[in-house]
């Protein structure tokens, strides 16, 4: 990507959503615990191809890269992921409803 031609640098920013912060936290935690390296994440990101940069947001690409590295590392299987994503979808139609926060249930 470095050295390619491109248009003006867009300056608008956004506050990070909770789910984005969680992706960031999972990336840092799993990396610090040795489940993958930043290079492993990068490889997964680059394997997505250039159009992934147009189609998906930053943290969308990162959760995909984190997930791919965890499956490749044998932390969980593709089936486990698919099953869990289906369970999550059944919980509700918003992120708030679908987040099954155990601490919430324990405390209140």
């Amino acid at each position: 990507m470095g050295g390619d031609e491109a248009g003006p640098v867009p300056k608008e920013g956004h506050d990070f959503a909770l789910w984005e912060k969680r992706v960031d936290a999972l990336m840092v935690l799993c990396s610090s615990k040795g489940h993958f390296t930043v290079d492993g994440l990068r490889r997964a990101l680059e394997d997505m191809g250039e159009d992934a940069f147009e189609k998906h947001s930053y943290y969308e690409r990162w959760i995909a890269a984190v997930n791919q590295n965890l499956i490749e590392g044998g932390v969980y299987t593709l089936e486990e992921l698919a099953t869990r994503m289906e369970v999550v979808a059944q919980r509700g139609t918003t992120y708030g409803e679908a987040t099954h926060d155990r601490a919430d249930h324990r405390n209140g």
Partner: peptide
């Protein structure tokens, strides 16, 4: 809920929740 909590759930958000829970 935070503002990002009450928008329609996306595929990638579902993945984040699933990955976090599995971990």
């Amino acid at each position: 809920y935070r503002q990002d909590d009450d928008a329609p759930l996306t595929y990638w958000q579902r993945m984040e929740i699933a990955v976090r829970e599995l971990l």
